[in-house]
Design a protein around this nucleic acid. Structure first.
Lengths: 155, 155
DNA sequence: ACTTTGTCTACCTAGTAGGTAGGCTTAATG
DNA sequence: CATTAAGCCTACCTACTAGGTAGACAAAGT
């Protein structure tokens, strides 16, 4: 299950993207528009800002706007930065690999083998789908044809 | 991330399956063989028993054995009974559907649409792969379709 | 100055993960 | 029929996390 926080983050980004290029919204507008607790959203946006996805302006008439283009923000990125690794086992994460303590033979681990397929297909969706894709009734997801291309995205 | 408990359950089932048809093992044997805390494993096996996956015999020379055939026990079943729903959103679970509180229009929800693809592919793997599949060095039941997928498995 | 926005730090509460402890029941076996 | 070795059951514990709240401070527009 993805966290409430990640859902809020995605909803906020989608709302900002809908606003159009360069446009900004205030925390309060997003919060009431999406029924997100305002002070909680504050922390989330701050987090997105620290990761360079969004910019803010302070003071009267301040607010938040997207820094990256909607088609350059993937669900995977957002999810990783809010919820942590996507992989179902630490030993399968590319971005935050950790050995399983109790696993003696990683490459022979049957459980790992099965879940590696789950992880792979989850990444395939999440690292390819962008905020822009989610937005319109526009075309779903672009097919990726080469392995190199997939690698580039997954980085 | 799947829980430690689910991993233990799967490892115990795999070990029992390796033992062969009708054969039984004691909690202690499984616990030490797989480095699982014994009293914790006790609870897990009890749970598997209540769900009809495993049978026990009490008293001296007791132990546990598989009740279902290894090819009739899927990873999905085990995961659901230990960790709960597989779906990344409550509103996507088939076995434990729940509306998202704060979602006004479920069918139009962009987040749901994206994650439904993740859920779908996770189910595709987990509900098809059985303990028997995990066992052998034989390849899993599901066809391998993409290069990336093949990469992931051999890695 | 004053007001309205974002920023930062601290804190809170319920629930869960990952176990431990210990008494009770069942069944071989000597 | 007592002993002993297994599973069964209930209770409990500790650390951590999810999902927030609270409130003082800092910048910027008017």
């Amino acid at each position: 299950m993805i966290s409430q926080k990640a859902k809020y983050a995605l909803r906020a980004l989608i709302m900002l993207a809908r606003e159009g290029e360069g446009a900004s919204l205030q925390i309060g507008e997003i919060a009431s528009g999406q029924s997100i607790p305002k002070k909680f959203l504050e922390q989330i946006l701050l987090d997105l800002k620290r990761h360079g996805i969004v910019v803010s302006r302070r003071g009267k008439a301040g607010g938040y706007a997207l820094l990256k283009r909607p088609d350059q923000i993937t669900f995977g990125q957002v999810l990783r930065l809010i919820d942590g690794p996507i992989a179902p086992l630490p030993c399968l994460s590319r971005t935050a690999y950790r050995r399983c303590e109790d696993c003696s033979d990683e490459s022979g681990c049957e459980i790992r083998q099965v879940f590696s397929r789950v992880a792979q297909s989850a990444r395939e969706v999440l690292d390819r789908t962008t905020i822009a894709d989610a937005l319109g009734r526009g075309r779903p997801v672009v097919e990726i044809e080469t392995f190199a291309e997939a690698e580039a995205i997954t980085s």
